[in-house]
Design a protein around this nucleic acid. Structure first.
Lengths: 146, 146
DNA sequence: AATACCACTATACAAAAGTATACTGATATA
DNA sequence: TATATCAGTATACTTTTGTATAGTGGTATT
């Protein structure tokens, strides 16, 4: 159902599990907490994830992002892009054309976020399989009381 | 400076990078989007991450969590634990003692979140090294203008 | 001359998230 | 008898986050 790449990723992640288990997190030095906070910050709010998501496909102009990220207002887009810029996740390049062209692109660091997203995808898919379907009986076999 | 386990994790993650790059995310089927949303949901808000964090060390009672997660109010803790429970991330067990004892524990699925946290730690540490220090000149060498 | 495009900004407002403070009832300890 | 502990709940409030709507200046198209 999912690509071989995902299967491979699953194996890798299982290997990580085997070697690390909770040990890494349990040591939990302060720098780890800061690191997690930074990452959470990168995705913070309703719009950063979809914005980063489209930019993973390549650099884009303001209006292009606005069109691709459904329902976002220019105010929010502007605000979030500024935020991502000061946090070193996207770069903003102004071209001296008429009318001006402004391009947003993920920094190398920003592109690395796809690893976090993949860990999220992995967890989310697994979690849905083992939990959500079971806890919502109405979704199983189309049976429903009353 | 960091444990060998982390170094190993770094190698694994680099391997993943080599094999997957952005391909997985670029395919981006609907189920992936849902998966990411579920994961973001698991961490949503100010308190879920620290709560899950302490529970990674083992099951705890309400008051224990309240003491360990600094500054949280019982209202917030109660609310977030309920949320985590209905989402299949923690279980709640009531013991018939006097006064009652209630224990919260991560489900297997909840424990798997440590993989996501480790991906976040990895990104955050790397991002700090390559970005934040450079973009805040005041932090470099103690030099400061004015 | 009127309208559309670009990359935004301004203002006002609504909704969501989080905080402060006090309280519950049963038991145990000082 | 007074106070503390357990696991929370109730009420009112503030702060943060997001929305709605309109407007900017300069150019290009109709």
């Amino acid at each position: 159902m999912y690509s071989g790449i995902v299967k491979y990723s699953y194996l890798i992640i299982n290997k990580m599990k085997f070697f690390e288990k909770l040990e890494t997190v349990k040591k939990c030095p302060v720098s780890y907490v800061l690191a997690v906070q930074d990452t959470l910050n990168a995705f913070h709010g309703k719009w950063k994830m979809p914005i980063i998501g489209t930019l993973l496909f390549g650099k884009k102009r303001f209006k292009e992002i606005e069109r691709e990220v459904k329902k976002i207002t220019p105010r929010m887009l502007s605000q979030e892009l500024k935020d991502l810029e000061v946090n070193g996740i996207v770069t903003r390049t102004v071209y001296n054309t008429t009318p001006v062209t402004v391009e947003y692109e993920l920094t190398p660091s920003g592109q690395e976020l796809h690893l976090v997203m993949e860990a999220m995808i992995h967890w989310g898919l697994q979690h849905r399989q083992t939990n959500i379907m079971e806890s919502l009986p109405a979704l199983n076999m189309g049976r429903q009381s009353a």
